[in-house]
Design a protein around this nucleic acid. Structure first.
Length: 493
RNA sequence: GGGCCAUUAGCUCAGUUGGCAGAGCACCUGACUUUUAAUCAGGGUGUCCUAGGUUCGAAUCCUAGAUGGCUCACCA
């Protein structure tokens, strides 16, 4: 503690001295509950009715301009900023003197009359003010703000104070998720919660995080998807369910990957992937309308029209369009391999037709899909939980929705044949044994559930973080996650 | 994990060929009762990311490391 004191630099020492001085004068710098009757924005917006009326506002001081026996300052609250005006002859000598110990960053509450200055700025002429909290650290500089990206993520609270657009993004994020819930509830879906800690982490191809339960002395995994539990609920007779929740994947970090992220998965009995397409396009467009008032958004300077219906194209067609290679004319693994080599792709010999097709899609197509589109009929090898196409068992009734080159949604007509499902898991186990630690593990209880009968169903997953990025025009996932995963600094923080 | 780049005052950033560590804002002292990037007069507050090395001398050059960014790989 003493050592901590010694390490404080002069700026911090000065603020602590002011804190002591306030206490010496009988003013408690960390105040009590304070009921404001207006937000700053409401006072400014309703000046005509509030002029000369008394208002109570609370907020953080973000600037002070002192003029001897009077002072101007700006108070920032959740909804904006408002100027306050303090005169010695109005607040009294004692209160005015104590104002000398106020710093930028402090929280105060004020009572005063609303007026307009000569320059026309709506201002509160303070009669009384109260200390709510003293800030012992200075805020970043007033017009460059906080730019250091690392500091912005590590001290998001400061980022939120000084960068208005950052606050707005997270308000928008919250409203996007609310709108999603409202729409799904309105459409008759039931929100449920399934385990985050699981003995088997399935439902996606990814490495899980591992933890340990002491009392049971067992290994537990953090979920990598909500899929398999939600489908168990369809078996149980809950016809329409969804879960919005955190998913954890033990993988690399990038501008579009955070180890923990939020997904929504939606399942509907007696439905198929066509229904899921309708849900996807309506959900995304109506969320945009509810939150931003329009189905046409601007992303990185390009207009994106989210209005349904979005075009549907098969993966084979999309691959033909962007790579010129026509997989409808390629029927065996060997010819697929040769086509890939010819197209300049590096790949292992013996890769099956479906995986080669998918490789073409990833390499040549994904990033070109800027306008909303559903790519359908994914190969079976990469879709172990999706139902086969009746006309072509190499493909599945699966689609992904793409916008701005990003995968936004992933959905299929769910595989409900337990025997087929067991075989798919066994294939995945084969991959696993061959060293692919992201392949599926066998989930016997899930098979057991399917053996009790699961109606035909459509299922859909949407990555909420990427959807928020798209709707708020952010290109880094860290700008839509309040506290993104970072390495701790040496020395711990 | 590979490559490239960055790290200097509370914040935003300069720093030449290796020669005493700089600016603006913030902060401190004083003046000022409608200012608003308030103004005026004065004041530099520092582990130059860390540890070694080269050198008479290192923020600057070299080596290793830390953190971050971009990118490739990875990742539906």
């Amino acid at each position: 503690m003493e050592q901590e004191q010694q390490q404080l630099n002069e700026l911090l020492m000065i603020r602590r001295r002011k804190l002591e001085e306030l206490r010496n004068r009988g003013v408690e710098p960390f105040g009590q509950k304070f009921e404001a009757d207006y937000y700053s924005a409401d006072i400014i917006g309703n000046f005509d009715t509030l002029e000369s009326r008394e208002v109570t506002v609370a907020g953080r001081l973000i600037s002070i301009r002192s003029h001897g026996k009077a002072a101007f300052a700006h108070l920032q609250d959740y909804r904006g900023q408002i100027q306050i005006y303090l005169r010695q002859d109005q607040v009294g000598e004692e209160q005015y003197e104590i104002f000398d110990f106020v710093d930028i960053g402090d929280f105060i509450g004020v009572v005063g009359d609303v007026f307009k200055t000569r320059k026309g700025e709506v201002t509160v002429n303070v009669k009384k003010y109260t200390y709510l909290a003293k800030a012992l650290r200075p805020l970043p500089e007033k017009w460059h703000g906080l730019k250091d990206i690392e500091l912005r993520y590590r001290q998001r609270y400061v980022d939120l104070i000084v960068n208005e657009e950052v606050k707005q993004t997270f308000i928008d994020r919250s409203r996007i998720i609310s709108a999603m819930r409202e729409l799904l509830n309105e459409w008759g879906f039931l929100e449920v919660e399934t385990p985050i800690m699981q003995t088997i982490a399935g439902g996606a191809l990814a490495r899980p995080f591992v933890t340990h339960h002491n009392a049971l002395d067992i290994k537990l995994f953090l979920r990598i998807a909500t899929e398999l539990h939600l489908k168990r609920l369809l078996v149980g007779g809950l016809d329409k369910v969804y879960e919005i929740g955190r998913i954890f994947r033990n993988e690399g970090i990038s501008t579009i990957h955070n180890p923990e992220f939020t997904s929504v998965e939606i399942y509907q009995n007696y439905a198929d992937y066509e229904d899921m397409m309708k849900i996807t396009e309506n959900l995304v467009c109506q969320i945009a309308q509810k939150v931003f008032g329009t189905g046409k958004i601007s992303f990185q300077g390009k207009e994106v029209d989210l209005t349904p219906p979005w075009p549907r194209e098969t993966m084979i067609d999309v691959v033909r369009k962007y790579s010129g290679v026509d997989f409808s004319q390629i029927s065996d693994d060997q010819s697929a391999f040769e086509a890939a080599r010819k197209a300049g792709l590096e790949l292992d010999k013996g890769l099956p037709w479906g995986e080669v097709l998918y490789l073409f899609f990833e390499e040549f197509c994904e990033e070109q899909l800027l306008d909303p589109i559903f790519v359908t009929e994914f190969p079976i090898e990469v879709s172990p939980l999706a139902k086969k196409l009746p006309s072509d068992p190499r493909l599945t009734l699966r689609f992904e929705g793409f916008i701005a080159g990003w995968e936004i949604a992933n959905a299929f007509t769910e595989l409900n044949d337990p025997i087929d499902q067991r075989e798919r898991f066994e294939q995945q186990l084969g991959k696993r044994e061959a060293g692919d630690d992201e392949a599926h593990v066998m989930d016997n209880d899930f098979i057991n559930a399917l053996e009790h009968g699961m109606p035909p169903a459509g299922g859909l997953g949407i990555g909420i973080d990427r959807l928020v990025m798209l709707l708020t025009d952010n290109i880094s996932i860290r700008d839509v996650i309040l506290f993104p995963t970072l390495k701790p600094r040496a020395g711990g923080e």
